[in-house]
Computed example of a mutant assay.
Amino acid sequence: MFTIASTPQLYPLTDRAVVALTGAERVKYLQGQVTADIDRLGPGDACAGGHCDSKGKLWASFWLANLGEQLLLVMNQSLVARQLPELKKFAVFAKTEIDDVSDHWQVCGLAGEGLSHWLNHQVGDGNLWQGGVIIPVAAEHALLVLPKDAELPDLPRGDEQEWRGLMIHAGLPDMSAEHQGDYIPQMLNLQAIGGISFNKGCYMGQETVARAKYRGANKKAMFILEGEVEDEVAVNQDLEMQLGDNWRRAGTVLSACRQGNECMLLTVLNKDLDADTLFRIKEQPDSRLRLRPLPYELTD
């Protein structure tokens, strides 16, 4: 279920937003706003990251790329309405412009066996390409961000649902507006995918993020569940876990992908759960889901 293709494929994505920072102080400004270390990113470099409120709760998780003259944040489109004003709040004091430039870019997923070889042949050294950028997100998985008028690579096309499944399979968070203000970055495992720097200095929400690491204050993490469901599964639906003969609320759906009765989803749960714990969708009492091992080591 949701396995990577045997050859590279292109997945056009319609639900991605692109936010750009330009101006002389774009790097300095973003460095003081997000969890990632922007100073270490040269042109073509990219990483995961998060933007928090003053209490350390996420406005957005995103992928960040340095294009040289601008920084691009790629995120779930539903986040922008609340996140962008927060990101711009202090920009009036800096030489930077921050804009939703989604209309000027096209975003696609790239995945499949041999993708790294294909990219080396097509792009060569570095990730800048055709006025855009390739953002590696996992082994043989990448985001392709190109100008709207750029020609897309001649690769077999996959669909958006498949890409969502691949991202869940890889344990990569994709939070939506329904969860803004609910989670600190470690609850979405951003530290496990290089999205948090613990030595970069101050940024919005940094004290909470540091406390979660150094004082063990965080008891939750993001997990993959897979199994059978009865119907569609939507973001923010309630999940229940079995305790003896009873069921108790455990969390909500962060993102999900369904093929027939099979489903794979991401959710935030307590870290001390038994590996054989049984779950279900609250509105689907006959559904059954179990934990799937994460493809990376989970740390604080």
Rank of each mutant, 00 (worst) to 15 (best):
L128I: 14
P285Q: 01
Q70L: 08
A275C: 05
R16C: 09
L67D: 08
N270L: 15
S287A: 07
E262G: 12
L172M: 09
N120I: 10
R288G: 00
C52H: 07
D39P: 03
D100Q: 12
R288S: 12
G114H: 03
L269W: 06
R290Y: 02
F279D: 08
M241F: 02
F62I: 09
L225D: 02
N66T: 06
M204Q: 13
T208D: 04
P285L: 09
W59A: 01
L13N: 00
A111D: 01
I38D: 01
L143I: 05
E86Q: 15
G251Q: 08
L294V: 04
C47G: 08
K219I: 09
W59C: 11
R164F: 03
V27M: 07
K220F: 13
P153K: 10
G23D: 06
S54M: 13
L172N: 06
G216M: 13
L87W: 12
P85N: 03
L144F: 03
C257A: 13
A111G: 12
D149L: 06
P8S: 08
N127H: 15
L239Q: 11
D149V: 09
K28A: 12
T267Q: 05
R215G: 10
N76R: 11
I135L: 11
L239H: 06
R157S: 14
G201T: 11
P12A: 04
M187F: 13
G260C: 02
T208L: 07
I98Y: 02
H141Y: 06
A91M: 09
T7G: 05
C52N: 03
E240W: 00
R249G: 06
N76I: 00
G216S: 09
I193P: 05
V145Y: 06
L119E: 00
F2T: 02
N218Q: 10
G165T: 12
Q106M: 05
L265H: 00
L13T: 08
K220H: 14
L30H: 05
A24Y: 07
L67E: 08
W105I: 00
K55A: 14
Q259A: 07
